[in-house]
Amino acid sequence: MVTFRNDSAFVRVVLGPGRSEERRIVTGLSDAINVEVVEGLKEGDELEEKPVKKIE
């Protein structure tokens, strides 16, 4: 769900039906499965899964 790019982490936050925006977050501790979000999200924000790539 989290995208790591150039030392920063991003997630896509759902804004409404069919709309979402990419937001930068600051991550804290992680055990590789779960990751602590220190900054950038508030309680109750819904996140979008990454689309699954299809081979064609």
């Binding site: 790591f4 030392d7 699954v52 790539k53």
Partner: peptide, 19 residues
């Protein structure tokens, strides 16, 4: 993962930068 089309099932992920 992207190069060789090793695509994780939903609910999992490939090796990432922090790893």
């Amino acid at each position: 993962g992207d190069l060789r089309n090793v695509i994780p099932e939903p609910g999992g992920r490939f090796v990432n930068g922090p790893d």
